[in-house]
Write a protein that binds this DNA or RNA. Structure first.
Length: 421
DNA sequence: TTATATGATTCGAC
DNA sequence: GTCGAATCATATAA
Protein backbone atom coordinates (compact mmCIF):
# COMPACT_ATOMS: atom_id res chain seq x y z
CA UNK A 1 0.00 0.00 0.00
CA UNK A 2 1.28 3.46 -0.83
CA UNK A 3 2.51 5.25 2.16
CA UNK A 4 0.68 8.42 2.98
CA UNK A 5 2.35 11.79 2.65
CA UNK A 6 4.25 12.79 5.71
CA UNK A 7 2.16 14.79 8.06
CA UNK A 8 3.46 17.96 9.51
CA UNK A 9 4.30 17.06 13.06
CA UNK A 10 2.25 19.87 14.50
CA UNK A 11 -0.34 20.35 11.85
CA UNK A 12 -2.96 20.90 14.51
CA UNK A 13 -0.92 23.72 15.77
CA UNK A 14 -0.61 25.11 12.27
CA UNK A 15 -4.26 24.82 11.51
CA UNK A 16 -5.52 26.03 14.80
CA UNK A 17 -8.73 27.64 13.74
CA UNK A 18 -9.96 25.06 11.31
CA UNK A 19 -8.32 21.69 10.86
CA UNK A 20 -10.33 20.84 7.79
CA UNK A 21 -9.45 24.08 6.13
CA UNK A 22 -5.75 24.00 6.51
CA UNK A 23 -4.96 20.29 6.42
CA UNK A 24 -7.89 18.45 4.94
CA UNK A 25 -5.92 15.38 3.95
CA UNK A 26 -4.45 14.85 7.36
CA UNK A 27 -7.81 15.25 9.01
CA UNK A 28 -9.28 12.76 6.60
CA UNK A 29 -6.52 10.38 7.51
CA UNK A 30 -7.30 10.68 11.17
CA UNK A 31 -10.98 10.22 10.48
CA UNK A 32 -10.21 7.16 8.46
CA UNK A 33 -8.35 5.72 11.37
CA UNK A 34 -11.20 6.52 13.67
CA UNK A 35 -13.96 5.28 11.42
CA UNK A 36 -12.49 2.92 8.88
CA UNK A 37 -15.85 1.37 8.20
CA UNK A 38 -17.62 4.60 7.43
CA UNK A 39 -14.96 6.70 5.81
CA UNK A 40 -14.41 6.57 2.09
CA UNK A 41 -11.76 4.00 1.29
CA UNK A 42 -10.94 5.74 -1.96
CA UNK A 43 -8.17 7.72 -0.33
CA UNK A 44 -6.04 4.66 0.27
CA UNK A 45 -5.44 5.69 3.76
CA UNK A 46 -3.78 3.40 6.21
CA UNK A 47 -6.51 1.86 8.35
CA UNK A 48 -6.51 0.35 11.76
CA UNK A 49 -6.27 -3.15 10.25
CA UNK A 50 -2.94 -2.37 8.72
CA UNK A 51 -1.49 -1.55 12.07
CA UNK A 52 -3.14 -4.36 14.00
CA UNK A 53 -3.46 -7.74 12.33
CA UNK A 54 -7.05 -9.00 12.49
CA UNK A 55 -7.83 -10.77 15.72
CA UNK A 56 -8.47 -14.46 14.92
CA UNK A 57 -11.15 -14.61 17.59
CA UNK A 58 -12.88 -11.60 16.08
CA UNK A 59 -12.59 -13.17 12.66
CA UNK A 60 -14.19 -16.35 13.92
CA UNK A 61 -17.04 -14.42 15.43
CA UNK A 62 -17.49 -12.38 12.27
CA UNK A 63 -17.53 -15.50 10.13
CA UNK A 64 -20.01 -17.18 12.37
CA UNK A 65 -22.32 -14.18 12.46
CA UNK A 66 -22.09 -14.00 8.70
CA UNK A 67 -22.83 -17.70 8.32
CA UNK A 68 -25.76 -17.49 10.69
CA UNK A 69 -27.14 -14.56 8.75
CA UNK A 70 -26.88 -12.16 11.66
CA UNK A 71 -24.35 -9.89 10.03
CA UNK A 72 -23.82 -9.43 6.32
CA UNK A 73 -26.27 -8.25 3.68
CA UNK A 74 -29.81 -7.62 4.77
CA UNK A 75 -31.49 -9.24 1.78
CA UNK A 76 -33.19 -12.27 3.28
CA UNK A 77 -30.08 -13.22 5.14
CA UNK A 78 -31.88 -14.22 8.26
CA UNK A 79 -34.42 -16.49 6.72
CA UNK A 80 -31.91 -17.99 4.32
CA UNK A 81 -29.57 -18.74 7.16
CA UNK A 82 -32.45 -20.15 9.14
CA UNK A 83 -33.31 -22.47 6.31
CA UNK A 84 -29.70 -23.49 5.96
CA UNK A 85 -29.42 -24.01 9.67
CA UNK A 86 -32.59 -26.04 9.64
CA UNK A 87 -31.24 -28.20 6.86
CA UNK A 88 -27.93 -28.58 8.62
CA UNK A 89 -29.73 -29.64 11.74
CA UNK A 90 -31.37 -32.44 9.84
CA UNK A 91 -34.77 -30.85 9.77
CA UNK A 92 -36.84 -30.45 6.68
CA UNK A 93 -40.17 -29.13 5.65
CA UNK A 94 -41.71 -30.61 8.75
CA UNK A 95 -42.10 -28.66 11.96
CA UNK A 96 -42.27 -25.53 9.84
CA UNK A 97 -43.99 -23.79 12.70
CA UNK A 98 -40.96 -24.20 14.87
CA UNK A 99 -38.70 -23.05 12.06
CA UNK A 100 -40.71 -19.91 11.48
CA UNK A 101 -40.45 -19.30 15.19
CA UNK A 102 -36.71 -19.80 14.88
CA UNK A 103 -36.55 -17.33 12.02
CA UNK A 104 -38.51 -14.78 13.98
CA UNK A 105 -36.16 -15.08 16.94
CA UNK A 106 -33.13 -14.92 14.69
CA UNK A 107 -34.47 -11.75 13.10
CA UNK A 108 -34.88 -10.31 16.58
CA UNK A 109 -31.29 -11.14 17.43
CA UNK A 110 -30.15 -9.65 14.16
CA UNK A 111 -32.04 -6.44 14.81
CA UNK A 112 -30.70 -6.12 18.32
CA UNK A 113 -27.20 -6.84 17.10
CA UNK A 114 -27.33 -4.17 14.41
CA UNK A 115 -28.90 -1.62 16.73
CA UNK A 116 -26.22 -2.21 19.33
CA UNK A 117 -23.52 -2.15 16.70
CA UNK A 118 -24.74 1.19 15.43
CA UNK A 119 -24.86 2.49 18.98
CA UNK A 120 -21.29 1.42 19.57
CA UNK A 121 -20.07 2.95 16.36
CA UNK A 122 -21.88 6.15 17.09
CA UNK A 123 -20.51 6.24 20.62
CA UNK A 124 -17.04 5.50 19.30
CA UNK A 125 -17.26 8.32 16.77
CA UNK A 126 -18.64 10.73 19.30
CA UNK A 127 -16.01 9.90 21.83
CA UNK A 128 -13.25 10.17 19.26
CA UNK A 129 -14.55 13.53 18.13
CA UNK A 130 -14.65 14.59 21.72
CA UNK A 131 -11.04 13.53 22.25
CA UNK A 132 -10.03 15.22 19.03
CA UNK A 133 -11.64 18.40 20.22
CA UNK A 134 -9.79 18.12 23.48
CA UNK A 135 -6.53 17.60 21.61
CA UNK A 136 -7.29 20.56 19.44
CA UNK A 137 -7.86 22.62 22.54
CA UNK A 138 -4.58 21.36 23.95
CA UNK A 139 -2.75 22.07 20.72
CA UNK A 140 -3.22 25.76 21.47
CA UNK A 141 -1.00 25.44 24.47
CA UNK A 142 1.41 22.71 23.36
CA UNK A 143 2.45 21.02 20.12
CA UNK A 144 0.69 17.72 19.53
CA UNK A 145 2.30 15.20 17.21
CA UNK A 146 0.34 12.98 14.81
CA UNK A 147 1.78 10.03 16.64
CA UNK A 148 0.10 11.17 19.80
CA UNK A 149 -3.16 11.52 17.96
CA UNK A 150 -2.77 8.08 16.47
CA UNK A 151 -2.02 6.67 19.88
CA UNK A 152 -5.11 8.24 21.40
CA UNK A 153 -7.26 7.06 18.54
CA UNK A 154 -5.76 3.61 18.86
CA UNK A 155 -6.64 3.46 22.54
CA UNK A 156 -10.20 4.50 21.83
CA UNK A 157 -10.49 1.95 19.07
CA UNK A 158 -9.15 -0.86 21.16
CA UNK A 159 -11.61 -0.04 23.90
CA UNK A 160 -14.55 0.04 21.57
CA UNK A 161 -13.51 -2.99 19.59
CA UNK A 162 -13.31 -5.00 22.79
CA UNK A 163 -16.85 -3.90 23.56
CA UNK A 164 -17.80 -4.84 20.03
CA UNK A 165 -16.19 -8.22 20.50
CA UNK A 166 -18.29 -8.77 23.60
CA UNK A 167 -21.37 -7.85 21.62
CA UNK A 168 -20.45 -10.30 18.89
CA UNK A 169 -19.63 -12.97 21.42
CA UNK A 170 -22.94 -12.68 23.21
CA UNK A 171 -24.79 -12.55 19.88
CA UNK A 172 -23.10 -15.77 18.83
CA UNK A 173 -24.05 -17.36 22.12
CA UNK A 174 -27.62 -16.25 21.70
CA UNK A 175 -27.73 -17.75 18.21
CA UNK A 176 -26.25 -21.00 19.50
CA UNK A 177 -28.80 -21.25 22.26
CA UNK A 178 -31.57 -20.48 19.83
CA UNK A 179 -30.24 -23.06 17.46
CA UNK A 180 -29.98 -25.76 20.04
CA UNK A 181 -33.42 -25.01 21.37
CA UNK A 182 -35.22 -24.90 18.06
CA UNK A 183 -33.21 -26.90 15.62
CA UNK A 184 -31.50 -29.63 17.55
CA UNK A 185 -33.47 -32.63 16.41
CA UNK A 186 -32.71 -34.59 19.53
CA UNK A 187 -34.37 -31.99 21.66
CA UNK A 188 -37.55 -32.02 19.69
CA UNK A 189 -37.84 -35.74 19.17
CA UNK A 190 -41.43 -36.82 18.82
CA UNK A 191 -42.69 -40.32 18.52
CA UNK A 192 -44.37 -41.09 15.25
CA UNK A 193 -48.08 -41.57 15.30
CA UNK A 194 -49.46 -45.05 15.77
CA UNK A 195 -50.67 -45.14 12.18
CA UNK A 196 -47.30 -44.15 10.82
CA UNK A 197 -45.54 -46.79 12.90
CA UNK A 198 -48.05 -49.36 11.71
CA UNK A 199 -47.42 -48.51 8.09
CA UNK A 200 -43.69 -48.79 8.58
CA UNK A 201 -44.02 -52.00 10.55
CA UNK A 202 -46.28 -53.52 7.94
CA UNK A 203 -43.69 -52.82 5.31
CA UNK A 204 -40.88 -54.07 7.48
CA UNK A 205 -42.49 -57.38 8.37
CA UNK A 206 -43.80 -57.98 4.88
CA UNK A 207 -40.27 -57.44 3.57
CA UNK A 208 -38.57 -59.26 6.37
CA UNK A 209 -36.36 -61.16 3.99
CA UNK A 210 -34.99 -57.92 2.64
CA UNK A 211 -36.08 -54.94 4.72
CA UNK A 212 -34.25 -52.37 2.64
CA UNK A 213 -36.74 -50.06 0.99
CA UNK A 214 -35.56 -48.30 -2.12
CA UNK A 215 -35.54 -44.54 -2.35
CA UNK A 216 -38.90 -44.64 -4.11
CA UNK A 217 -40.25 -46.98 -1.49
CA UNK A 218 -39.08 -44.65 1.24
CA UNK A 219 -40.71 -41.73 -0.47
CA UNK A 220 -43.88 -43.70 -0.85
CA UNK A 221 -43.81 -44.72 2.78
CA UNK A 222 -43.08 -41.19 3.89
CA UNK A 223 -46.02 -40.01 1.86
CA UNK A 224 -48.26 -42.71 3.23
CA UNK A 225 -47.17 -41.98 6.78
CA UNK A 226 -47.56 -38.27 6.42
CA UNK A 227 -51.06 -38.70 5.14
CA UNK A 228 -51.93 -40.74 8.15
CA UNK A 229 -50.08 -38.53 10.54
CA UNK A 230 -51.45 -35.30 9.21
CA UNK A 231 -54.87 -36.46 10.22
CA UNK A 232 -53.69 -36.61 13.75
CA UNK A 233 -50.64 -34.76 14.95
CA UNK A 234 -50.09 -32.51 12.00
CA UNK A 235 -46.50 -33.24 11.19
CA UNK A 236 -45.03 -35.19 8.32
CA UNK A 237 -42.40 -37.88 8.08
CA UNK A 238 -39.50 -37.32 5.76
CA UNK A 239 -37.57 -39.82 3.68
CA UNK A 240 -34.58 -39.54 5.98
CA UNK A 241 -36.83 -40.31 8.93
CA UNK A 242 -38.02 -43.39 7.11
CA UNK A 243 -34.38 -44.36 6.58
CA UNK A 244 -33.65 -43.78 10.25
CA UNK A 245 -36.65 -45.81 11.22
CA UNK A 246 -35.64 -48.77 9.08
CA UNK A 247 -32.06 -48.52 10.28
CA UNK A 248 -33.14 -48.60 13.87
CA UNK A 249 -35.69 -51.30 13.22
CA UNK A 250 -33.28 -53.62 11.47
CA UNK A 251 -30.65 -53.32 14.13
CA UNK A 252 -33.07 -53.67 17.03
CA UNK A 253 -34.90 -56.53 15.44
CA UNK A 254 -31.68 -58.37 14.82
CA UNK A 255 -30.46 -57.73 18.32
CA UNK A 256 -33.53 -59.16 19.93
CA UNK A 257 -35.60 -61.25 17.59
CA UNK A 258 -37.44 -62.86 20.47
CA UNK A 259 -38.73 -59.58 21.70
CA UNK A 260 -40.15 -58.72 18.31
CA UNK A 261 -41.65 -62.16 17.78
CA UNK A 262 -45.07 -61.14 18.95
CA UNK A 263 -45.03 -58.04 16.83
CA UNK A 264 -43.91 -60.06 13.83
CA UNK A 265 -46.74 -62.50 14.37
CA UNK A 266 -49.20 -59.70 14.70
CA UNK A 267 -48.21 -58.12 11.43
CA UNK A 268 -48.00 -61.51 9.74
CA UNK A 269 -51.54 -62.15 10.85
CA UNK A 270 -52.58 -58.75 9.66
CA UNK A 271 -51.05 -59.46 6.30
CA UNK A 272 -52.78 -62.80 6.27
CA UNK A 273 -56.15 -61.24 6.87
CA UNK A 274 -55.57 -58.78 4.09
CA UNK A 275 -54.47 -61.64 1.90
CA UNK A 276 -57.57 -63.61 2.81
CA UNK A 277 -59.82 -60.74 1.90
CA UNK A 278 -57.97 -60.17 -1.31
CA UNK A 279 -58.04 -63.84 -2.17
CA UNK A 280 -61.71 -64.05 -1.42
CA UNK A 281 -62.34 -61.09 -3.64
CA UNK A 282 -60.21 -62.62 -6.35
CA UNK A 283 -61.99 -65.94 -6.12
CA UNK A 284 -65.35 -64.28 -6.19
CA UNK A 285 -64.24 -62.18 -9.08
CA UNK A 286 -62.94 -65.14 -11.04
CA UNK A 287 -66.09 -67.12 -10.36
CA UNK A 288 -68.44 -64.38 -11.47
CA UNK A 289 -66.48 -62.73 -14.24
CA UNK A 290 -64.29 -65.33 -15.91
CA UNK A 291 -64.81 -68.82 -14.59
CA UNK A 292 -62.54 -70.25 -17.25
CA UNK A 293 -59.56 -68.05 -16.46
CA UNK A 294 -56.59 -70.19 -15.45
CA UNK A 295 -55.08 -69.38 -12.08
CA UNK A 296 -51.57 -70.46 -12.82
CA UNK A 297 -50.23 -67.10 -11.70
CA UNK A 298 -51.64 -67.45 -8.20
CA UNK A 299 -52.46 -63.81 -8.08
CA UNK A 300 -54.55 -62.35 -5.34
CA UNK A 301 -55.15 -58.74 -6.09
CA UNK A 302 -57.05 -55.84 -4.73
CA UNK A 303 -56.21 -52.19 -4.59
CA UNK A 304 -53.06 -52.63 -2.59
CA UNK A 305 -52.39 -56.30 -2.40
CA UNK A 306 -50.67 -58.67 -4.72
CA UNK A 307 -49.12 -62.06 -4.35
CA UNK A 308 -47.30 -62.92 -7.48
CA UNK A 309 -44.06 -64.51 -6.48
CA UNK A 310 -43.14 -67.72 -4.83
CA UNK A 311 -40.89 -65.91 -2.42
CA UNK A 312 -43.66 -63.69 -1.19
CA UNK A 313 -45.98 -66.57 -0.70
CA UNK A 314 -43.29 -68.46 1.05
CA UNK A 315 -42.71 -65.60 3.44
CA UNK A 316 -46.37 -65.20 4.12
CA UNK A 317 -47.03 -68.84 4.65
CA UNK A 318 -43.95 -69.28 6.74
CA UNK A 319 -45.04 -66.42 8.93
CA UNK A 320 -48.40 -67.88 9.41
CA UNK A 321 -47.85 -71.54 9.87
CA UNK A 322 -44.75 -71.55 11.93
CA UNK A 323 -45.26 -68.46 13.97
CA UNK A 324 -41.84 -67.40 12.93
CA UNK A 325 -40.96 -63.87 12.01
CA UNK A 326 -40.77 -63.89 8.30
CA UNK A 327 -38.11 -65.97 6.72
CA UNK A 328 -35.47 -65.74 9.37
CA UNK A 329 -33.70 -68.87 10.38
CA UNK A 330 -34.64 -69.01 13.99
CA UNK A 331 -32.82 -71.20 16.43
CA UNK A 332 -34.07 -74.77 16.29
CA UNK A 333 -36.46 -73.90 13.56
CA UNK A 334 -34.72 -75.98 10.96
CA UNK A 335 -36.02 -75.55 7.48
CA UNK A 336 -39.04 -73.55 8.29
CA UNK A 337 -40.17 -73.35 4.74
CA UNK A 338 -40.15 -77.11 4.41
CA UNK A 339 -41.92 -77.65 7.71
CA UNK A 340 -44.55 -75.15 6.88
CA UNK A 341 -45.19 -76.81 3.60
CA UNK A 342 -45.60 -80.12 5.34
CA UNK A 343 -47.97 -78.60 7.80
CA UNK A 344 -49.93 -76.99 5.11
CA UNK A 345 -50.31 -80.15 3.14
CA UNK A 346 -51.53 -81.97 6.16
CA UNK A 347 -54.35 -81.01 8.45
CA UNK A 348 -52.40 -79.78 11.42
CA UNK A 349 -50.49 -76.56 11.78
CA UNK A 350 -47.38 -75.92 13.73
CA UNK A 351 -48.14 -72.33 14.47
CA UNK A 352 -48.09 -72.91 18.18
CA UNK A 353 -46.65 -69.50 18.84
CA UNK A 354 -49.41 -67.87 16.96
CA UNK A 355 -52.31 -66.92 19.17
CA UNK A 356 -55.85 -68.16 18.88
CA UNK A 357 -56.89 -65.17 16.84
CA UNK A 358 -54.12 -65.68 14.42
CA UNK A 359 -55.03 -69.35 14.19
CA UNK A 360 -58.56 -68.50 13.22
CA UNK A 361 -57.30 -66.08 10.64
CA UNK A 362 -55.01 -68.77 9.36
CA UNK A 363 -57.97 -71.07 9.07
CA UNK A 364 -59.80 -68.44 7.12
CA UNK A 365 -56.91 -67.98 4.80
CA UNK A 366 -56.42 -71.70 4.42
CA UNK A 367 -60.01 -72.05 3.49
CA UNK A 368 -59.81 -69.27 0.95
CA UNK A 369 -56.55 -70.45 -0.47
CA UNK A 370 -57.86 -73.95 -0.82
CA UNK A 371 -60.46 -72.57 -3.17
CA UNK A 372 -57.81 -71.15 -5.41
CA UNK A 373 -56.97 -73.46 -8.26
CA UNK A 374 -53.33 -72.48 -8.55
CA UNK A 375 -52.58 -73.22 -4.96
CA UNK A 376 -50.79 -76.51 -5.46
CA UNK A 377 -48.65 -74.93 -8.13
CA UNK A 378 -47.62 -72.28 -5.70
CA UNK A 379 -46.59 -74.86 -3.18
CA UNK A 380 -44.58 -76.65 -5.77
CA UNK A 381 -42.69 -73.48 -6.55
CA UNK A 382 -42.30 -72.80 -2.89
CA UNK A 383 -39.81 -75.53 -2.32
CA UNK A 384 -37.51 -73.92 -4.81
CA UNK A 385 -36.77 -71.07 -2.42
CA UNK A 386 -35.27 -71.74 0.90
CA UNK A 387 -36.30 -69.16 3.42
CA UNK A 388 -33.71 -66.50 3.65
CA UNK A 389 -33.26 -63.57 5.89
CA UNK A 390 -30.76 -63.25 8.64
CA UNK A 391 -27.68 -65.11 7.66
CA UNK A 392 -25.39 -66.91 10.03
CA UNK A 393 -23.21 -63.84 10.41
CA UNK A 394 -26.19 -61.73 11.30
CA UNK A 395 -26.70 -60.01 7.99
CA UNK A 396 -29.68 -60.10 5.74
CA UNK A 397 -28.82 -62.52 2.96
CA UNK A 398 -30.16 -62.17 -0.51
CA UNK A 399 -29.49 -65.63 -1.79
CA UNK A 400 -32.20 -66.64 -4.18
CA UNK A 401 -34.51 -63.70 -4.12
CA UNK A 402 -35.60 -62.84 -7.61
CA UNK A 403 -34.85 -59.22 -8.35
CA UNK A 404 -38.47 -58.49 -9.04
CA UNK A 405 -39.90 -59.71 -5.80
CA UNK A 406 -43.02 -57.86 -4.86
CA UNK A 407 -44.18 -57.97 -1.32
CA UNK A 408 -47.54 -59.33 -0.25
CA UNK A 409 -48.65 -55.86 0.61
CA UNK A 410 -47.60 -54.44 -2.68
CA UNK A 411 -49.76 -53.76 -5.59
CA UNK A 412 -49.14 -52.36 -9.04
CA UNK A 413 -47.95 -48.82 -8.24
CA UNK A 414 -47.21 -49.53 -4.65
CA UNK A 415 -43.95 -49.51 -2.75
CA UNK A 416 -41.16 -51.73 -4.07
CA UNK A 417 -38.37 -52.99 -1.97
CA UNK A 418 -34.77 -52.37 -2.75
CA UNK A 419 -33.25 -55.70 -3.59
CA UNK A 420 -29.93 -54.24 -4.52
CA UNK A 421 -28.70 -54.59 -0.96
C1' DT B 1 -38.76 -41.63 39.78
C1' DT B 2 -37.06 -45.29 37.15
C1' DA B 3 -37.03 -48.37 33.23
C1' DT B 4 -37.90 -48.97 28.71
C1' DA B 5 -38.94 -47.43 23.98
C1' DT B 6 -37.73 -44.76 20.24
C1' DG B 7 -36.09 -41.20 16.93
C1' DA B 8 -31.80 -39.05 15.72
C1' DT B 9 -26.84 -38.62 15.37
C1' DT B 10 -22.14 -40.03 14.86
C1' DC B 11 -18.53 -42.93 13.25
C1' DG B 12 -16.15 -46.26 10.69
C1' DA B 13 -16.54 -49.67 6.88
C1' DC B 14 -17.73 -50.50 2.33
C1' DG C 1 -23.68 -42.43 -1.03
C1' DT C 2 -25.70 -46.45 2.35
C1' DC C 3 -25.02 -49.53 5.95
C1' DG C 4 -24.45 -51.40 10.89
C1' DA C 5 -23.29 -50.32 15.40
C1' DA C 6 -23.01 -47.49 19.35
C1' DT C 7 -24.71 -43.80 21.55
C1' DC C 8 -27.44 -39.81 22.91
C1' DA C 9 -31.60 -37.49 24.30
C1' DT C 10 -36.24 -37.47 24.80
C1' DA C 11 -40.96 -39.71 25.29
C1' DT C 12 -43.67 -42.77 27.55
C1' DA C 13 -45.03 -46.52 30.54
C1' DA C 14 -44.78 -48.61 35.00
Amino acid sequence: MARRAPICHNYLAQGRNDIGETTPIEYAQVLAMIMPSTFSPGLSIRGAQEEDPPDPQLMRLDNMLLAEGVSGPEKGGGSAAAAAAAAAAGGAADNSIEHSDYRAKLTQIRQIYHTELEKYEQACNEFTTHVMNLLREQSRTRPISPKEIERMVGIIHRKFSSIQMQLKQSTCEAVMILRSRFLDARRKRRNFSKQATEILNEYFYSHLSNPYPSEEAKEELAKKCSITVSQGVGSTITVSQVSNWFGNKRIRYKKNIGKFQEEANLYAAKTAVTAAHAAAAAVQNSQTNSPTTPNSGFQMKDEEFQLDSAESKNTLLTNMFTGSSGSFNLPNSGDIGFLSMQSLNGDSYQGAQVGANVQSQVDTLRHVISQTAGYSDALAVNTMYSPHGLSANGGWQDATTPSSVISPTEGPGSVHSDTSN
